[in-house]
Amino acid sequence: MEKVRIGIIGLGNMGTGHANYLIKQEVKGAELSAICEPRPDRQQWAKENLGDNVQIFDDLDKFLSSGTIDAVLIATPHYDHPEVAIKAFNNGLHVLCEKPAGVYTKSVRQMNEAAKASGKVFSMMYNQRTNRLYKKLKDLVSSGELGEIRRTNWIITNWYRSQSYYNSGGWRATWAGEGGGVLINQDPHQLDLWQWTIDMMPKRVRAFCYFGKHRDIEVEDDVTAFVEYENGATGLFVTTTGEAPGTNRFELSGDRGKIVIEDGKLTFWRLRVSEKEFNETFTGGFGQPECWKCEIPVEGKETGHLGITQNFVDAILHGTPLVAPGEEGIKGLMLSNAMLLSTWTDNWVDLPIDEDLFYEHLQNKIANSKVKKDAGYKTLEVKGTH
């Protein structure tokens, strides 16, 4: 194979963005060969902007079995991601899926199993993994510079959304339409990076989600979650769409100091000796380890969505390791599912979660949602950016 023929499923804002860079041939070794989109207006846009060589389908099954594509890029509503991906794998296609991996881990686990059975390349559109700040943080943690992790804190409250934003689509901020609020819509990248940078998932979660606290919506718009890790470390995740101005601050504390990412900078307060060593040897009463404030140089370029797509194509053509393996999409979703389940049960939730229990609670929410869910791709509106 010299080129990967890619078909995009869904031409909302995200799908349209992917189509634009693919049609311009900005991804080496890839060509946009087909689109699957049920809405006539978006089909017309594709005809006018993508050229005669891009075939347009309004039926998913015909699209997947057409023989015109080698891989799909899924940019449909959240609920559809696992079902569409499984169908693609069953048709012998490689899959690149927009975030989140899905709405509930039970369906995403089935997607992962289908991916493994197919032997095809499977990647998630976790474009923030190309962000040089978080890449550098992961490098510092994995190389041992920070020592053993003691605490993780992420305050991510700069997701301000007005009531008019939520009113712009009947599916927005509903259990049936989107499957959740700030955790599933705005935070998937942070939830992924939270565990990816330290290569560690919590062992249990206690969360407090507030539903429609700041806006007239039925899903969560304010969350505070406390987590515990196997090594004794603890963590805090705070998020909302109702604060202005907001904060985006990720802080890691370890045996050898503290690292903070905020305002586009990575700062390392590095201890000259580890806290453990200092504590074992210091006899002076009041005192603490000598600390150096280091502004860490961060090199490289953030390649974003295009970079993840290029990596996906390179993995197909050349066996290049994936930046964001698809099966890892379940991790961030596990965290958001755990936060909701903890709130619904008013209790601690162990990880991995009880997937059947979460599904049961979610179905109750869907049954009472303002909009009624239809799982069929052709009847679901392809949503835009979040």
Rank of each mutant, 00 (worst) to 15 (best):
L357K: 15
T197L: 06
L351M: 05
W45Q: 04
F250M: 01
E26P: 05
T247Y: 02
P38W: 04
E48T: 11
L335K: 14
K265H: 10
I8Y: 11
V227I: 02
N347R: 09
F278E: 00
A324I: 11
V382I: 01
C294R: 08
V95H: 03
K99A: 04
A19Q: 14
M201Q: 03
I330D: 01
A375S: 10
F89K: 12
P188N: 08
K99C: 08
A75G: 05
G319L: 10
V108A: 08
I366W: 08
A315Y: 01
L22F: 04
S123D: 14
P352D: 01
V54N: 13
G144C: 09
M14F: 09
Q186E: 13
H305R: 14
A19S: 15
E295A: 00
P289Q: 06
R129G: 10
W159G: 02
I330A: 13
A34L: 06
V141M: 07
S123H: 12
G177A: 05
L32K: 08
K370S: 15
W171R: 10
N112H: 06
I8G: 13
H78R: 07
I56V: 12
R42P: 02
E381T: 11
A233P: 13
A244L: 08
G326M: 10
P321H: 04
F122K: 01
F226Q: 12
I156H: 00
E355I: 15
W348F: 09
V371N: 05
S164P: 09
G29Q: 14
G287A: 03
A114G: 13
Q55M: 02
S336P: 10
N231A: 15
P82F: 03
Q190A: 07
C209H: 06
L266C: 14
K136A: 12
T343W: 00
P289F: 14
P325I: 12
N53E: 03
I296K: 07
T241E: 03
M111E: 11
I330E: 07
N112I: 01
A244V: 06
K331F: 05
M339F: 05
E275D: 13
G384C: 03
D80N: 13
